[in-house]
Design a protein around this nucleic acid. Structure first.
Lengths: 148, 148
DNA sequence: TGCAAAATCACCCAAAAGGGTGACGACAAC
DNA sequence: GTTGTCGTCACCCTTTTGGGTGATTTTGCA
């Protein structure tokens, strides 16, 4: 912005000089008319700039660029915390299935075991996680990086 | 920048020519000063607009936006899909609370509404999401980027 | 101002989930 | 061979969740 003002000032000065030069060069009548013209010119040039800036102002064209932030790689459960909490492989498996939104019956069907088995597994799982609900177990499991 | 100076020179020359022309043309007419001023004003207004546009033209501002493909970042719900599914703000809020592992009663307490209200909200939410269980709703909500 | 959407609440009923207890077989470790 | 863990299953009971219906109040927008 500073450079603009500078350039504009220079141009204005140059302009006045030119006008004065034309005044001396082509002086026939009143020499005030050129100065008058220069003033008007400068004024309206400023106005023009302001107008051009104001009327045609468009928001900075935002170009969105996708930057993949840590594209989740193949997940691996945090072995540390798993053994820390004493969670068995079966329980972890069931936690994953719970997180994917399956009911106990669906889990039982998928693992070819009875629904009661799933319930005991999940019961012990919740106990180890300190969860009271399956949704809470999922939340805890995610923050503890037991599941993706 | 060089071309600008060139163009400016040309315009200056043209201007002088025009001025001379108008000078000769309307010299005989005594009341030409207003027309002269207006002409200069209009000309410089146009020039000002052009200048303002040219000098202050910014390159298309490319703003890199981190689009977390799979992880992290201050989360913002996918407005598109939210309105697409007809999910209201309240329902989205409750989805978030469900995802954080709260029971309906706890959600009701936190939002200062009755448990029944939470149940109707979640019921309609599951309907819109096509979920049968809250865990499934959470799973769908996460993959649809409705919740973190 | 008046309508439509959203938010609120109630009641009933069925299904799912969760807690507790007990039991049994397989398998590895001591 | 005893012990401990793991996976499996059953039964009972309570709590939570979900479905359906209806109604009232708030609110945003035309």
């Amino acid at each position: 912005m500073k450079r603009q003002v500078l350039i504009y000032g220079l141009i204005g000065g140059l302009l006045i000089t030119v006008l004065k030069w034309t005044e001396y060069r082509f002086l026939v009548i009143e020499h005030s008319i050129e100065i008058y013209g220069a003033l008007v010119a400068a004024l309206f040039a400023g106005l023009g700039i302001w107008l051009g800036q104001t009327l045609t102002r468009k928001k900075p064209a935002v170009i969105l660029k996708e930057v993949p932030t840590a594209a989740a790689g193949p997940f691996a459960a945090d072995e540390m915390r798993v053994s820390e909490l004493g969670i068995t492989a079966r329980e972890l498996e069931i936690l994953g299935l719970i997180a994917s939104g399956l009911s106990n019956r669906e889990i039982a069907g998928r693992l070819f075991v009875s629904e009661n088995t799933v319930k005991t597994h999940s019961s012990r799982l919740f106990d180890k996680l300190g969860a009271k609900r399956r949704t809470q177990a999922v939340q805890i499991g995610k923050t503890a990086r037991l599941i993706p």
